[in-house]
Computed example of a mutant assay.
Amino acid sequence: MNILENKKVIIIGDRDGIPGEAIKACVETVPSAEVLYASTECFV
């Protein structure tokens, strides 16, 4: 059982950390997880 099974996910990545698209690629490996929104922001 995966913690993301049957979950809807909102992803906010960091430009100087882990980008949102990289996190999205990992979440998409769980077949039943649904990515609703993914973005990379710059927090200064």
Rank of each mutant, 00 (worst) to 15 (best):
M1N: 10
N2H: 11
N2Q: 11
N2P: 05
I3H: 06
I3S: 07
I3A: 11
I3Y: 08
I3F: 07
L4D: 03
E5P: 02
E5D: 15
N6F: 07
N6V: 06
N6H: 12
N6K: 11
K8T: 06
K8C: 05
K8E: 03
K8A: 01
K8F: 05
V9L: 03
V9W: 01
I10Y: 06
I10P: 01
I10W: 03
I11N: 03
I11C: 03
I12E: 05
I12V: 14
I12M: 09
G13T: 03
G13F: 06
G13I: 01
D14N: 13
D14C: 11
D14S: 13
R15K: 15
R15E: 15
D16G: 09
D16M: 14
D16W: 13
D16H: 14
D16K: 15
G17C: 10
G17E: 08
P19V: 10
P19Q: 06
G20P: 05
G20F: 06
G20D: 03
G20W: 06
G20A: 06
E21V: 12
E21T: 13
A22F: 08
A22K: 12
A22W: 02
I23D: 02
I23F: 01
K24Q: 11
K24I: 03
A25Q: 10
A25F: 08
A25E: 10
A25M: 07
C26D: 00
C26G: 11
C26T: 01
C26S: 08
C26F: 05
V27M: 05
V27K: 04
V27F: 05
E28Y: 02
E28R: 01
T29L: 11
T29N: 10
T29V: 06
V30L: 04
V30E: 05
P31M: 06
P31N: 08
P31K: 07
P31Q: 09
S32T: 15
S32I: 10
S32L: 07
S32R: 00
S32G: 10
A33S: 11
A33P: 04
A33Y: 02
E34S: 09
E34H: 07
V35Q: 01
V35F: 05
L36W: 08
L36H: 07
L36V: 13
L36Q: 09
L36C: 09
L36D: 00
Y37S: 09
Y37I: 11
Y37G: 04
A38F: 11
A38K: 08
A38W: 09
A38Y: 10
A38C: 12
S39W: 14
S39T: 14
S39A: 15
S39E: 15
S39V: 15
T40Y: 12
T40C: 13
T40F: 13
T40N: 12
T40P: 07
T40S: 15
E41C: 12
E41Q: 14
E41H: 11
C42K: 15
C42F: 15
C42D: 15
F43L: 14
F43K: 10
F43E: 13
F43I: 14
V44Y: 13
V44K: 12
V44R: 12
